[in-house]
Amino acid sequence: MSFDGPPPSIRRAIWDGSIPVQILLNPGESRVFDNTDPFYIQLPRVSYLPLFYPQLYAFFESFLIDKGSVNPAEAWLDFEGVPLKWHWPIGLLYDILTGRDPSYATMDWNSGDEHRLPWTLTLHYSDYPNEHLMRLDSPNALQDSFVNSTKEADYLRNGNSRAVMSLSMADSAKLWESIETHNFDTFWSIADRLITNSAYPIRHIPIKVYLPSAAKVVQKLVPPYLQGHRSLLPPNPSPQSSQSMLRLILFNTGEPTTVGIVLKTMVPELFLSTRANRIAKPVLHGIVIPLNTPLVELMKEASYPDGFLHVAVSMMS
């Protein structure tokens, strides 16, 4: 399979993206209240929080009031009182929860904005917010969630999950290990087969759009190309049907679907135009993406490791 996209350095840059984070122990759980030493760590954007929980426990263990009664598997983090969903990639959590417009990053820093770096999070070992967070008490919970997400992405791209399912046991294990160990080369040696597999025309772009504050996720079936050719639809399509998935487009011939088109369709109240953003901006990997970016290209270069484009919507001030 030939690789004819932009140079792989975009993938590298995304993989290497990280956020400086300051982690504080919840004062109520510390024997020195708010005098606990903070923990500083540079967290990779494409990684997941639970992979760092053992490190946090090792650091904060000696500060805990009642170490004996603490279960390290009950760890959770919050940002300004909002529990962090551990199954979302770290970069997405930052982009959606800080709601920060990356174009003004430097200015924010100078003006002492409350969202300036490092990103400050609070660690808890008690009162696990069961109604907001999925449980993390089984050893494979994170891997299970990641694999389900890769399957879903695969299903969207190909109309089945065969590419993920047909990975050998060794390759599946390697794929997950590459996330655990944050290994770029191992990851792409396998993911290239899934994400840029061009044996079949791509049916849908795996994309989720996250709205600010409500933490609402919008997901629709997004064809990679606009349907310019009605004759390609199966005969007698029901006019009521809203699901384009059921109308397989055999040839990708139309104009590519752009970020602007998808946002205007999914979140019309925030994106009035497909070309200019006046109310909100789409943020991916901490970058404002131009509305005219074709989704197919974006998918090949800028998907998160689970195969999805997780786009956070940031309100313009």
Binding site: H87, M134, R135, A141, D144, S145, V147, K216
Partner: peptide, 25 residues
């Protein structure tokens, strides 16, 4: 089936809160 078996955790697509579900693949 799968890593955990066919029962996984996920977010309810409408409510956005954690639920168990039977994997639909």
């Amino acid at each position: 089936v799968g890593v955990h078996g066919a029962i996984s955790q996920g977010e309810h697509p409408v409510l956005g809160t954690p639920f168990w579900f039977i994997h639909p693949c």
